[in-house]
Design a protein around this nucleic acid. Sequence first.
DNA 1: TCTGGGGTCCTAGGACCC
DNA 2: TCTGGGGTCCTAGGACCC
Length: 423
Amino acid sequence: MIALVDCNNFYCSCERVFNPLLRDKPVVVLSNNDGCVVARSNEVKAMGIKMGTPLYQIRNILEANNVAVFSSNYNLYGDMSRRVMMLLSEFTPELTQYSIDEAFLDLSGFGEGEKLVSYGRKIVKTIGKGTGIPVTMGIAPTKTLAKVASRYGKKYKGYGGVCIIDTEDKRIKALQGFEIGEVWGIGHRSLDKLRYYGINTALDFTQKSESFVRKLLTITGVRTWKELRGESCIDVEELPQKKSICTSRSFPDSGLSELSSLEEAVANFTSECVRKLRMQHSCCTEITVFAYTSRFRLDLPQHCINRTIHLQVPTNDLQELVSTAVRALRMDFRKEGGYLYKKAGVIAWNIVPDSAIQTNLFDTIDREKQSRLAAAIDAINRKNGHNTIKVAVQGTTGKSWHLKCEHISKQYTTNLDDVIIVK
DNA sequence: TCTGGGGTCCTAGGACCC
DNA sequence: TCTGGGGTCCTAGGACCC
């Protein structure tokens, strides 16, 4: 049996841990730039506010209902996630973290039926007590069914945080009351197609033939279909190495028009990609820079920059990648035309381990020297903080492109100055 | 006025090989 | 007039996830 552990309203719950007065109050957490709603407490869900709603559309409702509003605080959420995962790993040797707030646990060998449920309740209780984060567990023979079970666990308090689908009877009942669009793996495109054929519930879907599903939704649809029928076939693996690394941001207000501001932003995004590359001990062979105007502002002139540069030798060198990215930006940047770039980003791909670099006969860079320099910079930054030493084009103020985050909470668990004082 | 960020996987079609 | 067969690899775009 497989268990899915899912933190309830994770970002909101993190804020509540350090602000207990909010425990029964409505809470929302916003995306970067305070743009959209990305997490809602149950009270806010009950108000009918949808995931992804832009803040400006619901500002009045939030104020009228006294909703606590937070900018996203990823240092806090990341650290709380680490704590949850650490506690979970004490209950089974087979744990796969699936996202910041979810993990799959292999519970084979831990009994069945009531015994399994009570083990699950013990896990849920331990996480709640140890971190302050409420979690729900769904248990079933497949991952997709475990997801279904956890939804029921969240919906009905009576389950005590753990819902199990372990008999054919329960499976049929669960799928009968489950909208097909809510199933893990069925997005809005597939939903449209399924609706056309009158398929509304997960049970309807499982009663179609394999060839029908294959034709309509390809192999991925068939996997979901099998999983819902109880045949396990989706593997979620801990990815040893990322295949692409991206850092991108939207800019506040209307966006940026000056090349120098964009250069500074792109340089910093590249620096962040380099940090991620080095953290997983890899190099990239290709780097893409993109920047575009707001797709919502059809009244303004539109332009899209998207330039990829292929590197001779795989690298994770800060100076080399920053100068390459800035060069890519300059190739496509348009000064004339009054373009306001609203979003930009950098993607590193073609990623290889840093231990297996294929060198190039015509390479002109002294890589030995560069890597000694990079190691020295790493050491200084590790000791004095990220970006203590950086490339000049990264700038020193960041004013022109920095994010809006007017409602951010403190770094309660990652900054000594912000640790809560108990009186 | 104001609309997030970071990933993976699959498929079709083109280019190329012998 | 009439132009093969069987592959691989790469890429862009689509779909999905949280």
